[in-house]
Simulated scan of single mutants.
Amino acid sequence: MKSYLQVYTGNGKGKTTAAFGLALRAVGAGKKVFFAQFVKGRSYSEIKAVEQWLPPITVRQYGRGCFIVKEPEQADIDVARQGLAEIQAVLRSGEYGLVILDEAAIALHYRLFTVDELLEAIRSRHQATEVVVTGRYAPPELVAAADLVTEMKEIKHYFNDGVVAREGVEY
């Protein structure tokens, strides 16, 4: 079966959630999943659920547990680049039917690594490994390389009314 590159981008909510939905579908089909989270480095409810109930999904975080507000620190760059190196090996291994690179587009936006480096890793993947890249600001080169692109568009969001992130809904 041919594998494809999918990109979930845009300023709307639901990119990571959609990727986890695809991961659940892949596990149901007997596939192993590698879920790499760039920039993120804290515990989220979906990760807790995966660790409890879905051992076919391996989750690794390549972030420092803090949000990059302006410019990334060298530590942010180092963690992301280490993650990209690990991901390259995972992609080539053929061990996983699905590899999700959550927030990799944000990592590109903050210049933690280059789009050429990311695309090189993706292009070198095992032929049976499907790849999903999520995150706002997907660059044109990534969009052009993708086989499927979904844009999540914010129409209305309760954050604009002062609602803070809620456990079990946003994290």
Score class of each variant (00 low, 15 high):
residue 81 R to D: 01
residue 88 Q to M: 10
residue 58 T to C: 05
residue 155 I to C: 03
residue 75 A to W: 04
residue 153 K to W: 05
residue 29 A to C: 10
residue 102 D to A: 05
residue 84 L to M: 08
residue 62 Y to T: 00
residue 100 I to G: 08
residue 39 V to E: 13
residue 102 D to H: 11
residue 47 I to L: 13
residue 111 R to P: 06
residue 84 L to T: 03
residue 69 V to E: 08
residue 121 A to M: 02
residue 54 L to E: 03
residue 27 V to R: 10
residue 43 S to A: 12
residue 68 I to E: 02
residue 96 Y to T: 03
residue 72 P to V: 00
residue 38 F to C: 05
residue 82 Q to H: 13
residue 146 A to E: 00
residue 137 Y to A: 01
residue 118 L to P: 08
residue 104 A to I: 13
residue 84 L to S: 00
residue 159 F to Y: 15
residue 123 R to A: 13
residue 60 R to D: 01
residue 99 V to L: 04
residue 38 F to Q: 02
residue 87 I to L: 13
residue 30 G to P: 04
residue 135 G to R: 13
residue 32 K to Q: 12
residue 148 L to F: 11
residue 132 V to A: 00
residue 29 A to D: 08
residue 96 Y to S: 00
residue 92 R to V: 06
residue 80 A to Y: 14
residue 154 E to D: 07
residue 46 E to F: 14
residue 149 V to L: 02
residue 112 L to I: 08
residue 142 L to E: 05
residue 107 A to W: 15
residue 75 A to L: 14
residue 141 E to Y: 05
residue 82 Q to M: 04
residue 32 K to V: 09
residue 104 A to Q: 07
residue 49 A to K: 14
residue 54 L to G: 00
residue 61 Q to M: 11
residue 72 P to N: 01
residue 66 C to I: 14
residue 127 Q to K: 04
residue 141 E to Q: 15
residue 41 G to S: 02
residue 76 D to M: 10
residue 142 L to F: 13
residue 120 E to P: 06
residue 69 V to I: 14
residue 39 V to A: 04
residue 119 L to T: 13
residue 105 A to N: 15
residue 62 Y to I: 01
residue 44 Y to S: 10
residue 103 E to D: 12
residue 103 E to N: 13
residue 147 D to Q: 07
residue 78 D to L: 11
residue 115 V to I: 06
residue 71 E to F: 06
residue 49 A to G: 11
residue 52 Q to G: 02
residue 137 Y to T: 02
residue 86 E to Y: 04
residue 147 D to M: 01
residue 27 V to F: 15
residue 26 A to G: 10
residue 145 A to R: 07
residue 73 E to M: 07
residue 72 P to M: 01
residue 121 A to Q: 07
residue 40 K to G: 02
residue 26 A to Q: 07
residue 64 R to H: 12
residue 152 M to R: 05
residue 156 K to S: 03
residue 98 L to Q: 05
residue 161 D to R: 14
residue 146 A to I: 01
residue 28 G to S: 13
residue 153 K to G: 01
residue 151 E to Y: 08
residue 83 G to Y: 06
residue 121 A to S: 03
residue 45 S to Y: 15
residue 100 I to H: 10
residue 28 G to P: 14
residue 51 E to Y: 09
residue 112 L to A: 05
residue 54 L to R: 15
residue 160 N to K: 14
residue 104 A to R: 06
residue 109 H to A: 02
residue 106 I to C: 05
residue 138 A to T: 09
residue 130 E to F: 10
residue 84 L to R: 09
residue 90 V to Q: 05
residue 95 E to Q: 15
residue 46 E to L: 10
residue 142 L to N: 05
residue 150 T to F: 04
residue 77 I to D: 01
residue 74 Q to C: 03
residue 136 R to G: 08
residue 88 Q to F: 09
residue 104 A to F: 12
residue 116 D to M: 10
residue 92 R to L: 12
residue 54 L to C: 11
residue 129 T to V: 01
residue 84 L to D: 01
residue 66 C to A: 07
residue 157 H to E: 09
residue 136 R to Y: 12
residue 86 E to D: 14
residue 140 P to D: 05
residue 110 Y to G: 12
residue 40 K to S: 10
residue 54 L to D: 04
residue 112 L to W: 15
residue 114 T to S: 10
residue 152 M to L: 07
residue 65 G to H: 06
residue 101 L to I: 07
residue 101 L to A: 02
residue 127 Q to A: 10
residue 154 E to W: 00
residue 155 I to D: 05
residue 114 T to K: 11
residue 158 Y to S: 06
